[in-house]
Design a protein around this nucleic acid. Structure first.
Lengths: 211, 211
DNA sequence: GCGTAACCCTACGCACGAGTAGGTATGCTC
DNA sequence: GAGCATACCTACTCGTGCGTAGGGTTACGC
C-alpha cells in the first residue's frame, strides 16, 4: 500500500519546527498547564510519542519554545540599535524593533511571556532574559550620562532601566490585545513616555521620530 | 473526652480569613496549578472539606484571594490621593501608597498578581482591576491637560496611562524580589521616571518629594 | 536488494489531586 | 436537657493527562 501515504515522512529538523510552532500556539491559547501534550501533537499533525522523542517532556518543550522565541526577539532588537549612536536614537530604534517584533508575533510572543512569568520553573529563564535587556538599557543610560560628565548610583540606574523595560513590556501586552493597533505608533508613544515623562507631555512637549 | 480539644472550634468568619491567608501563601509559593487544596487546608490548620464548605472550589477560592487582596490595595491607594490636588502631587501620593502596600504585603501581593496574569480564568478579573487603575491615571492626566487648555486623543491618553501603570507594576515586582529595598525610595525613583522621563534625568533634572 | 536506522503509530499504566459521601462532636437556644 | 445548627473529620471516587512500551513502515547507504 505505497500509493498515497496520506502525510509525508519528514526530516527531524522540519518536524521539530512544526512541533514548536504548534506548542507556541497551544501554550499561548491555553496556558502551560491547561495545554495538553495531545493537543500540541495533534496540532502539529503528529503523534504524541514523536514529541517526546524529539523535544522531551512538557517542561523541556516549553523551555524550548521560550528559547526559540526569546532568541528571535533578542536578535530583532540587537540588529536594530548600533551601540555608537546617541542614547535617544538607540532607544528609539530598539523600541521600534521590539514593537515591530511583537506586532508580527502577537499571540506567540505576548502570551508565552505572560505564561512564563507565573510558573516557577520558567520564571528564572525569563528573568535572565529581562535582566539582559535591563543591562542593555542601563548601559545605554550610563554611557549617555558619562558623556555629560554626570553619574548616578548603580541601583538608581538599574531601577530606572527596570521601569522602562517594564513599561515597554506592558505596552507590548496592550499591543498583543489590540490587533488593530499600529506597532510603530505604539513605539512612538512609548518613546514619549520614556524620554519625556508625563510632566513634559502635560506641558505640550512631544517627541517625534526624525529621519 | 472533653478535656483538651487539641484545636479550638472557631466561628466561620475567623476560619475563612485563616483559609484565605493560607491560600494566598500557598498560591504565591507554588502557583495556582501546583498548589494543592490539601496543602492549603493543612496550612490553614483545617481539613479539606471545610475549605470546600466555606470558600467553594479551587477557582472560587483563588478568586476570593484576588478579591480580598485587590480591594485592600485599591483602598490603600484611594485613601492616599485626593482628587482635588495637582496632578504631580496626586501621582506621588498614589505611588507612595502603592509601593508602601506592596512592601508590606511583599510575597502576598506580587505573586498573586504574577499568577493571575497567566491563567485565563483570572486574567479578566485582573484586567478589570488594572483598567480601573489606568482610568484613574488617565483621568488625572486629562484633568491636568484641560487645566492647561490642552487636549490629546483618548487613545493616546490610554496608552500613556497604561505605560505608567505597567512601569509601576514592574517596579512592584522588583520590590517584591528585593526584600532589602525601601518602598519609599522606590516610589521616588518611579516618580522620577514617570514625571520627568529618561531624557530629563540624563540632563540632570531630578524630582524630589516636597512637604 | 538487503540491512539498518530513522520515522511514526496505537495503545496503555499510573500518579496525582479535585471534589464528595457520610458521619461525629460541640455549643447555643428555649 | 432536648433539639438543632454549625463546626469539623476520615476516607473514599474518579477524571484527566503525562509519559512509555512495544511494534510497524519507509528511505537510504552500500
Amino acid at each position: 500500500m505505497s500509493t498515497v501515504p496520506a502525510f509525508k515522512r519528514l526530516p527531524r529538523a522540519v518536524r521539530e519546527q512544526q512541533m514548536l510552532d504548534a506548542a507556541v500556539k497551544v501554550f499561548s491559547r491555553r496556558g502551560f498547564h491547561a495545554a495538553s501534550m495531545d493537543e500540541i501533537a495533534e496540532d502539529a499533525g503528529i503523534s504524541k510519542p514523536m514529541v517526546y522523542a524529539y523535544l522531551g517532556t512538557k517542561e523541556e518543550l516549553f523551555v524550548a519554545c521560550l528559547h526559540r522565541e526569546g532568541t528571535r526577539m533578542m536578535q530583532a532588537i540587537a540588529g536594530a540599535a548600533a551601540p555608537d549612536l546617541p542614547a535617544d536614537v538607540r532607544l528609539w530604534r530598539g523600541l521600534r524593533a521590539f514593537f515591530g517584533f511583537v506586532g508580527a508575533h502577537r499571540d506567540g510572543w505576548a502570551v508565552l511571556y505572560r505564561q512564563a512569568r507565573g510558573e516557577q520553573p520558567f520564571a528564572g529563564e525569563l528573568a535572565t532574559m529581562r535582566t539582559r535587556l535591563v543591562e542593555v538599557v542601563a548601559g545605554m543610560l550610563d554611557h549617555a550620562l558619562r558623556a555629560e560628565g554626570r553619574e548616578i548610583t548603580a541601583i538608581d540606574l538599574e531601577v530606572v532601566a527596570y521601569a522602562l523595560v517594564g513599561a515597554t513590556e506592558s505596552l507590548a501586552d496592550w499591543l498583543a490585545d489590540h490587533p488593530e493597533a499600529d506597532p510603530e505608533k505604539t513605539a512612538t508613544r512609548m518613546m514619549n513616555v520614556a524620554w519625556l515623562g508625563a510632566g513634559q507631555l502635560l506641558h505640550g512637549v512631544t517627541w517625534r521620530p526624525q529621519e
